[in-house]
Amino acid sequence: MILETLQRVLETNGLITAFMFVGGLVWVSYWVSGNLTRGKVHGSAIAIALGLVLAWYGGVATGGSRGLSDFPLLAGVGLMGGAMFRDFAIVATAFGADIRALKSAGVIGAFSIVIGVALSFVIGVIVALAFGYTDAIELTTIGAGAATYIVGPVTGTALGAGSDVIALSVAAGLTKSVLVMIGTPFVAGRIGLNNPHSALIYGGLMGTTSGVAGGLAATDPKLVPYGAMTATFYTGMGCLLAPSLLYLMVRAIV
């Protein structure tokens, strides 16, 4: 009886349960960071990695598409980590940001977004070619998925690609997003990601809002507003370029 009541309380107060759960997760991660890695790996990087592992477990255990939040008990994690709160918190980080550095996003930011979309797209198309795909629509859809997991299905739907190819493009985009979250803190030093200027470029090149949000949180939260500023234009740019210009180019080549 106690357990049933507890479960009901936790489920009906889902968002509060999520706050407590994530708080515990962060606490464990910072403990691991401080005691097992002696601070070498940032606590937030461990928390994000742990979150992704749990998300994988949730997906495998429930067969759902929203990771850990497909367990009814942890449905609140879905709300807390959804686009609404994510964007709200990202906007809040802008408070106190260097307005001069943000304004300088203009030219180099736009440049990095276009390069970022084109680069990921071309790589995606090349990989698809290597795996034996030859149809222009299929190649374009997979290339678009390598940009972000939103650009892929938007492009595929616009061009009339099959649902199996669209699913592949989503998987490619999800892989990118997860990898950006985990990988960024490890390569940040080598690629010079330690100032607002390179964070602007990073956001424009990576483009995946979730990936950039997670990657910068694990690297240096002070850089978040700069990366988010450019990343927020990426998906729109991808949805604009992939089904039109980039598709025509692919069709002209194959």
């Binding site: 937030s44 994000i48 990695a49 979150g51 495998v60 949000a213 997670g214």
Partner: peptide, 13 residues
């Protein structure tokens, strides 16, 4: 914390 929750709801599987 919100980003950690975001990570936990990704479709990693």
């Amino acid at each position: 914390p919100i980003v950690v929750a975001m990570a936990a709801r990704q479709n990693v599987a």
